[in-house]
Design a protein around this nucleic acid. Structure first.
Lengths: 212, 212, 212, 212
DNA sequence: CATGAATGAGACTTCATTCAT
DNA sequence: TATGAATGAAGTCTCATTCAT
């Protein structure tokens, strides 16, 4: 999915890496502000203060740029989440940490997430099918679903359908980036608290234990 | 945002109305299948078996066509919801009916909803701002939020933040259209049951009362 | 290979047919004068006094335009040759008529032939292989080779290798279009006489009969 | 047309000469395989395993590279032909040797010849005129024409038009490179035999003498 | 000696839209 | 009522070339 236009020798130049990062950053900004269809190479280049050709010098094409953005953001978010989950023991705490970390990442990188959402929900191949939501499998969702399932198997949670509950909670997470970008007065901290309450109620985890 | 190209005399012709409906139907199909960027006037006209010019004869432009679609689908969905809510008395039952009716409408008109989501999340004016998610106010969300607030005011519900809970539940509703289109094996009935359970738990409504 | 951009109803409009013909004529001129790489859509449109978009309105793309040119010219040339051959009885006379008609068509339509040669020898698909010289089979060459073979089978000709002789004579025919375009002083009539002499000598046909 | 980018001191470095040769070799490969339009500097550099800039360091531009290729191949071919002709005495033998040597060179360096054909038939200056087929004069053709004329003047040949016969025979020679590249099953030896037969018949040289 | 970086011109193509009929 | 014809803006991408290091 990801390929460099620049003939990457074993160690990519500092300049190259910096330029790629800069271009990706500008692409993210444009995507977050102007949406998928507004994110033309010309606009991205303009924002970066460079010529269109430079973008195509560092990325083999628009697809490569967008894939790289998705790859990069997913990578950073995934890393943060993995790190956070490693500190938690019980499934209930893992779930809460998962939601909290997701929304926290989103708070610190709202444009990144918004950009990824724009790309994922709009990018389509020449056959018209989505490029980033592969048929049936969704690793992000599957991962979270597994978390729910583990808690349930451990007897800690109530009876529920892990697949559908995962969809519900993930949608609540994903929608936040849109709110954050569109509505400056959106209170993410309060939203996070509310969502965690909902998750606890929905999973049946006993909050009393935590608060005691 | 909406203006007719056809000089509407007092009584719009039957032909005119039929043509508009037909074109909107095709637009919805294309939007649902090929996404926002795949929905060119040419493609819509091709699917309708007419020439591009006809589309522009009945709609003053692409914007007009798309807003008409949104207007139309919102209208029909709103009507169904209003009708359903009128049969319910208690806030708890209203909330459940709201969710159920939303998902039911979505089940019967998946493409309609998908099309609207595509339009709303992508259509932007020349200034780059969203055309359909007005800054701050969102009548659909506000309506549902009001429902939650009423139940809370009536003492029937637990303590929660109506605004944020409304966002959470609406996102769970809205995400279903995407699932339905992308994943043929998606079980909407099960999803509906799960979501209603979550809503009941999240609002604190006592289900025992209903089942007793 | 050939497809219309315009939604061809059962009977193509006069205007449409005329425009297509006009555009193809201009394409042929540009190809003959400026070669394959000089034949951009912009240049062709400029010569036709129309906008680039019009070209793409009548042809689904550059490939379609070039294919149509090849198809058209081959069609006309083939028709002329078939017609001419039908008047001749003996293989020797058929061969001579074949050469004569080819060069005669070339004399009257030098740019057409030149354009086709440019396209055929340069057009390549995305895989880098020639688009118009299919691997192994060459109907034009095969046809002429068959003519030679028939004369040989009838005992009228000397012993020779029909395949290779066909290549030799066809190359002499094909090269003439280049001469004609590049060198205004090129005497096609004299060239034709010389080539027919060579063909008679090479096939071993007895000219004495004709001259007696 | 030809100018060195490297500041040639009195004795060009071995490295320089080797690099130039290597680049020209790769250019020839690309031209033979992918045709004129496929022969970009990037592709040539890629095949040579060097950067585009190196190509432009050793050649002042693409034009310089291509003319160097033509110059080089023509030089080698011309040398081989001159050498071969020096061993023959009679015009008839010279002609045969000319054809044989041409096709022999082509057999041993098919890509070289193919590359030159691609360049010569496609390269054009900014004014759109061919860069390598100068108006009217063609030294290669003129040389061969002179050979024919000498045989004719010596009374050894029949009456014919040397200019046009030269064109015919040269076209048969030139076409072979295309066949060789496109059709792996092409039998060059057989083609050579057939062409020499044709040349002998066309010039009227008495083969009986040679074979006796 | 070699290259990484950057650029601008120009290629093909898509698309919404206007206009006359 | 409907459409064929035409257009211009904008999009992605390729390429030869220049420049500083």
């Amino acid at each position: 999915m990801r390929s460099n236009s620049v003939q990457t020798s074993s160690n990519p130049t500092f300049t190259e890496s910096a330029r790629r990062t800069q271009i990706m950053k500008c692409a993210i900004e444009v995507l977050a502000e102007s949406g998928y269809s507004g994110a033309s190479l010309a606009e991205i280049a303009r924002r970066a203060g460079i010529s269109k050709s430079v973008v195509l010098y560092y990325f083999s094409g628009k697809d490569d740029l967008l894939s790289s953005v998705v790859f990069d953001v997913y990578g950073r978010a995934g890393q943060a989440i993995t790190e956070a989950l490693s500190h938690e023991a019980s499934p209930g705490e893992k779930i809460a940490a998962y939601v909290r970390t997701n929304l926290h990442f989103l708070e610190e990188h709202p444009a990144d997430i918004r950009a990824v959402v724009e790309i994922v929900s709009n990018a389509r191949g020449s056959d018209g099918t989505h490029s980033f939501v592969p048929q049936g499998e969704d690793p992000v969702l599957a991962h979270f679903e597994q978390l729910l399932r583990e808690g349930q198997d451990g007897g800690e949670f109530r009876e529920f359908d892990p697949h559908h509950l995962a969809i519900i909670i993930r949608s609540a997470i994903d929608t936040a980036s849109g709110r954050l970008v569109a509505d400056p007065s959106f209170d993410l901290a309060a939203y996070t608290r509310e969502l965690i309450s909902v998750v606890e109620l929905a999973t049946g985890i006993h909050r009393s234990e935590e608060s005691s």
